[in-house]
Simulated assay, not measured.
Amino acid sequence: MSADHQCYGVPLERYQLSRADHRGQQEAVDVAAWVAEQIAKAPRMSDEQLETILEMLREPRPPVEKMTWRVRLYCGHIREVARPRSWLRPYQGTSGKETCGDCGLDPALIVAFEPLEADSNQGKPA
């Protein structure tokens, strides 16, 4: 683990939600609802468009070395997530939202986190 990987709100089990956490969670919920609304209004893709997108997703991508993080979600549940090792925080390249596998909260904001061991085998072809 690099000394550059950040942590926040440790120990995760005792982290207390802040007003910013409550605002961030509400904003995440509002954005998710807006996106779902826009998707529902969007015209259906043609079979050709869908095939083009699927083809792009099938293209092989280079493996990425992963880092495991322990995160506390807005709902209070703690889980481990894997992210690219180059990220200094577990939500650096994302919005910082997860779906909680325990209670189903979706989106669930990441409110606290700590880096764990890097796993150099993750992301590599089997």
Score class of each variant (00 low, 15 high):
Pro43Asp: 06
Pro84Tyr: 05
Gln26Ser: 04
Val71Ser: 00
Ala33Lys: 11
Glu65Pro: 05
Glu65Ser: 10
Gln92Glu: 09
Gly96Ala: 01
Arg58Trp: 08
Val35Gln: 10
Pro63Ser: 02
Glu55Val: 10
Ala33His: 14
Pro43Tyr: 06
Val31Leu: 11
Arg61Gln: 10
Trp34Arg: 14
Pro60Ile: 06
Glu59Arg: 08
Val81Ala: 04
Arg44Phe: 13
Ala32Leu: 07
Gly76Met: 03
Glu37Lys: 11
Leu50Tyr: 12
Gln92Cys: 06
Glu27Val: 13
Leu54Pro: 09
Ile78Arg: 00
Gln49Val: 08
Arg70Leu: 02
Val71Leu: 00
Leu54Ile: 11
Gln26Leu: 07
Asp47Val: 11
Ile78Glu: 04
Met56Gly: 14
Val71Cys: 01
Arg72Glu: 00
Gly101Ile: 01
Gln49Ala: 11
Val31Asp: 06
Pro43Asn: 07
Lys66Met: 07
Leu54Lys: 15
Ala108Met: 02
Glu55Ser: 13
Pro90Cys: 00
Glu27Cys: 11
Gln38Ile: 02
Glu37Val: 12
Glu65Leu: 12
Trp87Gly: 03
Pro60Gly: 05
Gly96Thr: 04
Trp69Asn: 03
Met56Ser: 14
Arg61Gly: 06
Ser95Gln: 13
Pro63Asn: 01
Glu48Arg: 12
Ala36Pro: 06
Asp106Pro: 04
Leu105Pro: 04
Trp69His: 01
Ala82Asn: 13
Leu105Arg: 04
Gln25Cys: 02
Arg83Asp: 02
Lys41Val: 07
Asp106Arg: 08
Arg61Ala: 06
Glu27Ile: 10
Arg89Asp: 09
Pro60Asn: 05
